[in-house]
Computed example of a mutant assay.
Amino acid sequence: MHGRQWRLGVVMAIAALAACGGKQAPPAPPRPVLVVQPGGGPDLAFDAFAGEVRARNENPLSFRIGGNLARRLVDAGDRVRQGQLLAELDPGDQRLQAGAAQAQVAAAEAALLRARADLDRYKALADQQLVSRSTYDAQLAAYRAAEGQARAARAQAGVAGNQTGYTQLRAPRDGVIASRMAEAGQTVAAGQAIYILAGDAGREVQIALPEARIRDFQVGQPALVELWGRAGERLPARIREIAPAADPQVRTYAARVALEPAAAAAVDLGQSARVYVQQAGPAAALRIPLSALQRDEAGRASVWVVAPGTHALRRAPVTLGPFGADSVPVLSGVAASDWIVAAGGHLLREGQVVAPVDRDNRPVGAAPGAR
């Protein structure tokens, strides 16, 4: 009796185990993963530099001679025309020098006339053999000396006349007086700046480029200019000039960014501006966090990309640029619109369905199977 009961219990236990073995375990829910989209890219990779609007042609205007500044006819901010009189030195000394030079010319020409008459007389006597040939040659030399002195006197008179003209400072071109640097009554030296003239031919923004990245910039490279007083409006421009040597004090390279002619009329001299220059090479590539990088079976760099809709994982091999402190540029393999797993990739597998969330713990896209 006891043997039959024991056998019946064993059979029932085996049947129960068989019944339990036939049931399948419920599938595990999708694993939550943190996902991000690659940042940067050519449309967003810009370097920004602060600068100031300047004229393309900025000329310090000065007198070619020194003297006392008698009159100043324009002031900072005045618009001037080519040839307009801007300032004048006291011309008294120059007029006296010009008068003295003219007197020297008159004396030299009188001496030349006398030497010419003497030469003609000695030539007639020499033809009649009344004077020696050496005497005639001496008179010819005296005439040529007088002729040279007359030429020198006329040249000196021309210089003195020019010196008188140099007492007037005139505008070399159309433009605006950007600054005034001397006052009437002041004694100025030759070459000392009196005004700074900003010509009308073009407007530029002066910026400083960093020494460490100077090879990333070149003349002709496109740029955008945004005035601080008109935020959001960007004007087309190009790098026109880069200094060949760095400033010894701050170790930056001075550069000029020229505005397009249509945009130059929209800016004023001295305005503060920001210049945006698009980056090139790896700096302009998409960037991903270092924590998103994985290695496939062959040791190549890759990332996990979440398929839209199904949320299944796909391994995407990538080509990388130089590593940064917390990110790395991706030269190929992913697009800006892809969602990639930012962390924990070593726990995932190909084709696994996940529940992607962003850094704010918000679900990305619809859940798998959602209607």
Score class of each variant (00 low, 15 high):
133 R>C: 02
135 T>N: 12
136 Y>R: 15
136 Y>S: 09
136 Y>I: 10
136 Y>K: 12
137 D>F: 14
137 D>K: 10
138 A>R: 13
138 A>K: 11
138 A>C: 09
138 A>P: 12
139 Q>M: 11
139 Q>L: 11
139 Q>R: 13
140 L>W: 15
140 L>I: 07
140 L>E: 12
141 A>Q: 13
141 A>L: 12
141 A>M: 11
141 A>D: 08
142 A>K: 05
142 A>E: 12
143 Y>S: 11
143 Y>W: 14
144 R>W: 09
145 A>H: 08
145 A>D: 15
145 A>P: 00
146 A>F: 08
146 A>I: 10
147 E>K: 10
148 G>V: 13
149 Q>E: 14
150 A>Q: 01
150 A>Y: 01
151 R>H: 06
153 A>E: 05
154 R>A: 10
155 A>G: 10
156 Q>G: 13
157 A>V: 06
157 A>L: 05
157 A>N: 04
157 A>Y: 04
159 V>A: 13
160 A>W: 02
162 N>W: 15
163 Q>V: 05
164 T>E: 15
164 T>C: 09
165 G>K: 15
166 Y>F: 14
167 T>M: 05
168 Q>V: 11
168 Q>I: 08
169 L>Y: 03
169 L>M: 07
169 L>N: 02
169 L>Q: 02
171 A>P: 09
171 A>L: 10
172 P>L: 05
174 D>F: 05
174 D>P: 07
176 V>P: 02
176 V>I: 14
176 V>H: 08
176 V>M: 12
177 I>R: 00
177 I>L: 06
177 I>E: 01
177 I>V: 11
180 R>D: 11
182 A>Q: 07
182 A>F: 08
183 E>I: 09
183 E>F: 10
183 E>Y: 10
184 A>S: 15
184 A>F: 14
185 G>M: 12
186 Q>H: 07
188 V>G: 00
188 V>Q: 02
190 A>M: 03
190 A>N: 03
190 A>I: 04
193 A>C: 06
193 A>S: 10
195 Y>M: 04
196 I>N: 09
196 I>S: 10
196 I>E: 11
198 A>M: 00
198 A>H: 02
200 D>R: 04
200 D>V: 08
200 D>M: 06
201 A>V: 11
202 G>T: 01
203 R>M: 12
205 V>L: 04
206 Q>E: 10
207 I>V: 10
208 A>L: 06
208 A>Y: 01
209 L>Y: 02
209 L>A: 01
209 L>P: 01
210 P>F: 06
210 P>T: 03
210 P>L: 01
211 E>S: 06
212 A>P: 03
213 R>C: 01
213 R>T: 09
213 R>E: 11
214 I>K: 00
215 R>D: 15
215 R>N: 13
216 D>G: 09
